[in-house]
Nucleic acid binder design. Sequence first.
DNA 1: GACTGTATTCGCATCTGATGCAGATCTACA
DNA 2: TGTAGATCTGCATCAGATGCGAATACAGTC
Lengths: 148, 148
Amino acid sequence: MGLKVTPQRQLLFRLLHDTSTHPTADALFELASSQMPGISLRTVYQTLTDLAAMGELQSFDFGSGATRFDPNVDAHHHLLCTTCGDVADIYAEGADRLRVDDQHDFVVASTDIVFRGECGACRNAPAADRSRISTSSSTIETATRSQS
Amino acid sequence: MGLKVTPQRQLLFRLLHDTSTHPTADALFELASSQMPGISLRTVYQTLTDLAAMGELQSFDFGSGATRFDPNVDAHHHLLCTTCGDVADIYAEGADRLRVDDQHDFVVASTDIVFRGECGACRNAPAADRSRISTSSSTIETATRSQS
DNA sequence: GACTGTATTCGCATCTGATGCAGATCTACA
DNA sequence: TGTAGATCTGCATCAGATGCGAATACAGTC
């Protein structure tokens, strides 16, 4: 017995897979609300939590305060632009050769790698434009907060 | 003009450097309160924020919901035990050979690497002990919720 | 040692992200 | 179609974190 198919779940699943950003629950709620007025933020949280528990999503926290969700469940890593807050998936070269030295008695289950820096769009954008960028994507709100 | 030397700052600085764990603001507040009753949680947050801004501390968020602070400001990485929530510093072999492929137009400023898994203490601990320890990890709590 | 300007501390209010709960609603199966 | 049980929703609530203003304490000057 899997999860029941409800319009809310269908919508959220579709929205997640249609976006290349890594939206927060709140950003997803905004998106969903525009297509299904009345959907509850509580439902968004619940659905995301369920999907993550089922392994259909990965969830991350890049220190912005809000959890981000990623429908890409492959072993992959992330680029985080500290200017606009955008997150991109990446398969980093050399990641499989990382080692924890033996003096640490530790069994590694997974390895999270986050490259922080500046994306091309932000580097090329005039300073004046940057604020515009950071308010126009769905990840925005995180970006503006992190700059304060 | 640097920061003024106050007893609160001296205490917090000492506590941070005396501990090998990576305490949260709240944990540090508990510690500080035992040695300086009356110290304010607000002061702890303020001091940690100041020190981090000055580069005397690194702050991290491993997805537990609470920011952790680390007086080790060298370029280093972390082991996170998903059972007990403990964090250890590590200098991972191969980290300097990680590459972001050229197709990503991205300038890397820093690289965060977190190895998630189980520490020796938890692996060797009797099962009965684990539940006592395990309340601090958010990943666990997420997993258990999803089953309800 | 006393004085003074200013940084710091502290308590309270408040914000954001997230979750618990219970009643209303809806899905899926017989 | 009827029904059991899952799901949705709104509200209350929690934790971590921060803003603000008044009280306090530090550090430099005399």
